[in-house]
Structures are given as C-alpha cells and as structure tokens.
C-alpha cells in the first residue's frame, strides 16, 4: 500500500508517522507542501506540529497551501486521509471535516496520555474491538471540538465519532474530558468515512519499548 506524508514548515510529527507507516510495510513518500503533484497514494497523512506557527488559526495557513488542493481532490475521489493533531486542525480548515477546534477549555497546552473509547465501524479502526479502551498521547492547545447542532445530529446518526475521551473503565463524561470537546470527541470522520481527523497521536504508541502499541492498529486497519 502506498502512503504520502505531507510536510509543512513547522510539522514535527512527520517522521514519527513515517516510522509507523514503514513499520507496517507501507511504501511511504514525504511530500513538501509547495509540491503541486501528489504521488499515487492509497493513504495521505497530514501530521502534527505547528504549521506556520499556528498563525491566524491553527491550520488555517497550511490549509491554503498548493499541495492541499491535490489532497482535497484525492479526498473527493475516495482516497483515505488521516489528519493527526495539527493535521486534524488543517483538515478542519479545508472543510474536509466540518466543525472547529477551539482553544482547550482550561486554556492550557495539554500534554498527557489519555484513555480513548474506540468505535470500530470504520476503515481506520476496524482492527480494534468495538468499545475497546486504548491509551494514546495528546499534546495540543486547540483540541476543543465544536460544531453546530445539525452537524452534531448527523455525527450521531451516522456513527461518525471514531474516538471519545474516557477513563480507564470507559466512562465518558465531563470529568474524563481533557479539553472541553463536544461529546468528548477526540477523533471524527467525514460523512463518507474516508477521512479521519484526530487529536491523539497514534504514531507515538507503536512500540512497547518506549510506550505501548495501542496506536498500531490504526495503521494496520488501513492496510487490510
């Protein structure tokens, strides 16, 4: 399977994503944001970081870069797109995923490992058990997902929430919500379910020696 990782000035998780993809035998290419051609890809990843120093709104400037036009075209043709952290913010700013990511409710940059409840009814999560509790790292200042009432209804009806913040027992409520995100949303799909945006970093949890392997199944799910 072929993958591309888009790199912006300020991306800092691009190589970690590449390591994760290569561990699972993806044939991966790094693509600079000024490129106007995208290599043939089954999966495009927009990595985390601080593209353009988060100027204007996180992801707003990167969303207008040349290569993003190609990413949008590929997305509309059904290519799988994964946006992690700043990548999620960029997807939001392109409109590929509806909604907005506001500043964390407590106004603090949060860097910690959190528990997530998985909904496995999509291509990105199918190697997890439904309702499985996993532990991934979050590191962001603007991860507080917000959307309007109509979209929230669509999200619930079509089962578009991929990950929700919870505790180790799977309890989803205000106390287990680190950033104030609507319905504890940590990861969400577009209506066609070929695009996943998520604040937690699966690429940081792919090796038992340095953390755990809870993030690995996202990449392996995409493979099959």
């Amino acid at each position: 399977m072929k993958s591309s990782v888009i790199v912006f000035p300020g991306s800092n998780c691009d190589r970690d994503i590449a390591v994760a993809l290569e561990k699972l035998q993806f044939k991966n290419k790094m693509v600079w944001h000024k490129d106007s051609e995208l290599p043939k890809s089954d999966l495009i990843v927009i990595p985390g970081g601080f593209s353009y120093g988060d100027y204007l709104r996180s992801g707003a400037i990167a969303a207008k870069s040349k290569i993003l036009n190609e990413v949008i075209k590929a997305a509309n043709k059904g290519c799988l797109i994964l946006g992690v952290c700043n990548g999620f913010q960029i997807l939001i700013e392109t409109g590929l995923i509806k909604g907005a990511l506001l500043r964390n409710k407590n106004l603090k940059f949060i860097n910690k490992d959190v528990y997530l409840k998985v909904n496995n009814t999509n291509q990105f999560c199918k190697n997890y058990k439904n309702g499985q509790i996993i532990k991934l790292n979050i590191a962001h200042n603007e991860g507080n997902y917000f959307t309007d009432k109509n979209h929230l209804m669509e999200i619930k009806e079509n089962n578009l929430i991929a990950f929700q913040y919870c505790d180790e027992k799977g309890l989803v409520n205000d106390e287990t919500n680190p950033n104030g995100s609507l319905n504890n949303i940590a990861g969400i799909l577009n209506s066609k379910k070929n695009i996943l945006g998520m604040m937690p970093h699966p690429e940081r949890m792919i090796d038992k020696i340095i953390s755990n392997e809870d993030g690995l199944n996202i990449f392996s799910s995409i493979l099959n």
């Binding site: 204007l56 707003a60 207008k64 506001l102 959307t147 309007d148």
Partner: peptide
C-alpha cells in the same frame, strides 16, 4: 470568507 474568518464559530 476564504481565510480570515471561520464561519462556523
């Protein structure tokens, strides 16, 4: 509409 404002929020 295209850049300065996020019309959702």
């Amino acid at each position: 509409k295209k850049l300065l404002v996020n019309l959702i929020i």
